[in-house]
Amino acid sequence: MVEPILFVLMSMAALAGAVTVVAARNPVYSAMGLLGTLFSVAVLYVLQLAHLVAAVQVIVYAGAVLTLFLFVIMLIGVDKEEHWEEPLRYQRSFVAGMAGVVVLMAAGLTFFTDFDWVPAAVGGTDPSRTIGTVQAIAEPMFTDWVLAFEATALLLTIAAAGAIALAHYRRRPH
């Protein structure tokens, strides 16, 4: 009984955080909303027995990435005047309406049709595969998924080279 209650609570917290990120006018509040979402999702990972992913989520995302965000926000300046004129009027209400329609459709599908969210779960119930310890994740990561793991190295190289390529530009003095 604990699991569904925690799930509902944490999902709602995650959603509330996500809404704060886009709705808050002060970017620091947005960052705090993101923090809330990241923490709630970490709890959801624990519910799925993915302990390592949950820990990584808290350490890397909530810890490192969010601090970086806050640094950037502080560097740019929190108290700057912002222009809030929307080029497209009613843009936000339109998006909110669309989101409502999607949620209603999903709810309708779930409750009134024979829609099946997991129609053919063939794998998944093997208990040794559902425990997200470091070992359980490291083994497939460095055997079956080693190529995917190495491919992410390309991403890091691109990030470094791209940052230099974009930031190293100097306007010629005239």
């Binding site: 995917a148 992410t152 974009l166």
Partner: peptide, 26 residues
């Protein structure tokens, strides 16, 4: 052959292209 690899390839390629699109900073 793996959808995750498709995604990784897509991201590696696309992110490099985003930077290339902005190369002429002038």
């Amino acid at each position: 052959n793996n959808l995750v690899m498709v995604f990784l390839g897509l991201e590696v390629g696309s992110i490099a292209l985003y930077v290339l699109a902005g190369m002429t900073r002038s």
